[in-house]
C-alpha cells in the first residue's frame, strides 16, 4: 500500500517536473520569437530559471534529475533523429568528404593544443587542462577520454555545457560577422565547436545547418577520440 502511494507520488512529481520544464521552455521559445531576441535562448534561460527555483526551494539536483527521467530518456532518440538531415544531404557530403575531414582534423588539432597549453600556462593543473581540451566533443566521448587520461570529469562536463552554449548563442552571429555565410560552413563550425547543444540550436535555422552540424559532431568526436591521447601525452611532456 505504502509502495503504491510512493509510486503514485513519484509519477505525479515526475509529471509536474517534466510538464513544468516543457512549459517553461516553450514559453521562452515563444517570447524569443515575439521579441526576436537571440540572447533569449530557451535552453539556457530554462536552465538558469530551474537552477534558481531549485536553490530557492532547497531541492537537490539529484531529486530534480530523477524526476525528469522522461526528458533524459528522450535525449538518445533526439540525437538519433539528427540522422535525418544528414541523410538528406548525404550525396553532397560524400562528394566533399576529403575537405570535411581535413578541416575537422585541423579544428580538433588546434582545439586540443590551444586549450591544453593555455590552461597549463594559466591554471597549471593537468586534470583541468585535459578537461578543457575535450570540451568541444559530445559528452559521452569526452567523459570517457577524460577518465582515461586522468582528467577532471566534473570540469569536463561543465566545460562541455559552456562550449555548447557559447557556440549556440554567439556562433551564428560571429560567423556572419567574419563573413562565413554559407550554411554548410556555419553548420560544420558549430557542430565541431559546440557538439549536440550547438547542433540542436542551429537545427532551427535550416536543414543544411542541421546536416553539416550533425556530421561535424560525429566526425570531430571520432577524430578527437583517436588523436587526443597521443597529443595530450606529448604536450604534457613538453610543458
Amino acid at each position: 500500500m505504502v509502495s503504491t502511494e510512493l509510486l503514485s507520488a513519484h509519477i505525479l512529481s515526475s509529471f509536474v517536473v517534466v510538464a513544468g520544464t516543457i512549459t517553461l521552455f516553450q514559453l521562452i521559445a515563444v517570447l524569443q520569437r515575439k521579441l526576436n531576441a537571440i540572447w533569449l535562448q530557451p535552453m539556457l534561460i530554462s536552465i538558469l530559471v530551474i537552477i534558481a527555483i531549485l536553490l530557492w526551494q532547497d531541492i537537490s539536483f539529484e531529486n530534480y534529475f530523477s524526476n525528469s527521467w522522461l526528458l533524459n530518456a528522450l535525449l538518445e532518440p533526439a540525437v538519433v533523429a539528427l540522422g535525418f538531415p544528414l541523410y538528406q544531404h548525404l550525396e553532397t557530403i560524400t562528394k566533399q568528404w576529403k575537405s570535411i575531414i581535413l578541416v575537422l582534423f585541423i579544428g580538433a588539432f588546434i582545439a586540443i593544443s590551444t586549450s591544453f597549453v593555455i590552461t597549463m600556462l594559466l591554471i597549471g593543473d593537468y586534470t583541468i587542462a585535459v578537461a578543457l581540451s575535450l570540451k568541444s566533443v559530445t559528452t559521452p566521448i569526452a567523459i570517457a577520454i577524460a577518465g582515461q587520461l586522468d582528467g577532471n570529469t566534473a570540469i569536463t562536463a561543465f566545460a562541455i555545457i559552456l562550449a555548447g552554449f557559447f557556440g549556440a548563442l554567439v556562433g551564428p552571429p560571429w560567423l556572419k560577422f567574419i563573413k562565413v555565410k554559407s550554411p554548410k560552413a556555419q553548420g560544420l563550425a558549430i557542430g565541431a565547436a559546440s557538439h549536440a547543444i550547438g547542433t540542436a540550436t542551429v537545427s532551427n535555422i535550416s536543414y543544411e545547418h542541421a546536416a553539416y552540424s550533425s556530421l561535424a559532431l560525429i566526425v570531430s568526436a571520432v577524430i578527437t577520440a583517436l588523436i587526443s591521447p597521443f597529443m595530450i601525452t606529448f604536450l604534457a611532456g613538453l610543458i
Binding site: 530557451p42 530554462s46 536552465i47 530534480y64 525528469s68 526528458l71 533524459n72 528522450l74 535525449l75 540542436a200
Partner: peptide, 10 residues
C-alpha cells in the same frame, strides 16, 4: 529537441 538537454544542463 533542445528541451531534452535542459535537465543535464541544470
Amino acid at each position: 529537441m533542445g528541451v531534452c538537454f535542459v535537465p543535464a544542463g541544470v
